[in-house]
Amino acid sequence: MKSNRLEKAVFFTVLSLFLLVILFPFYWQFVTSIKSDEEIWKIPPSLFPQVTYWDNYVRIFKLHNFARYLWNSAMVASLTTIFSLIVGAFSAYALAKLKFRGKHLILSLVLSVSMFPPIAIAPSLFMTLKQMHMINTYWALILPYTTFALPLALWNLTAFFRQLPNELQEAARVDGCSFFQTFWKILLPLTAPGLFTTGILVFIAAWNEFLFALTFTTEDRMRTVPVGIALFPGEYTAPWGQIAAASVVVTIPLVLLVLAFQRRIVAGLTAGAVKG
């Protein structure tokens, strides 16, 4: 009984410490975002702001194109999600339900993409996109993001298609549906939960990407949020309050997404690695 209580105490202490370490940076960022310019540089820094000061939130929209960055990020991430789901679902269905030669090769090819170092592709992809006049367009980001999201999308969706009984497909075929119709009309609607889970993961990945976004967009009006924030500091000033405010603004939608769909996200994340 006593050891049990001790164990419980240890358990919750360790757990609280873990949570503290994980969440403290967010708290600190928030506190920084509502401090006045003077208070931000006060030494030692105050753990609680003396006066709440919301100007930083106004400034990020007034002094920077932050609204534009948000819009760019939302567009790029949504379109990437749609494309990856379409392209991914096509291939996943074929890989899971159809018989054809070269399956193994395709799987290894897709998998190898997840191992590509983005920087190894960036220079020559930049030149290709340049020749296609795509630099500073959404396409310059959507295409690479879709490619790099494919392993994830394929992996998850193939697992979902596999779970569907083969009898469904056979019945549809007997009714005269083509393979494509079977896929589009019968099986795809059934994988909606899988599409949703995969979609969230792809969206988050596209929303967060930095290297390609930094390299393939060179004009201010085309920047996404991560690049925008990274380039906030002016030539001469380090607006920490504004950086903090901007970080809070981008974190909020992600927190909401995570809170609402945590089970799905965890399921999607672990689907590939854990069988059964």
Binding site: T218, E219, D220, R221, R223, L231, P233, G234, E235
Partner: peptide, 12 residues
């Protein structure tokens, strides 16, 4: 309008 950083502008 180009990025603030001189390096970024140079690349562009």
């Amino acid at each position: 309008e180009l990025p603030n950083s001189t390096d970024g502008q140079h690349e562009r």
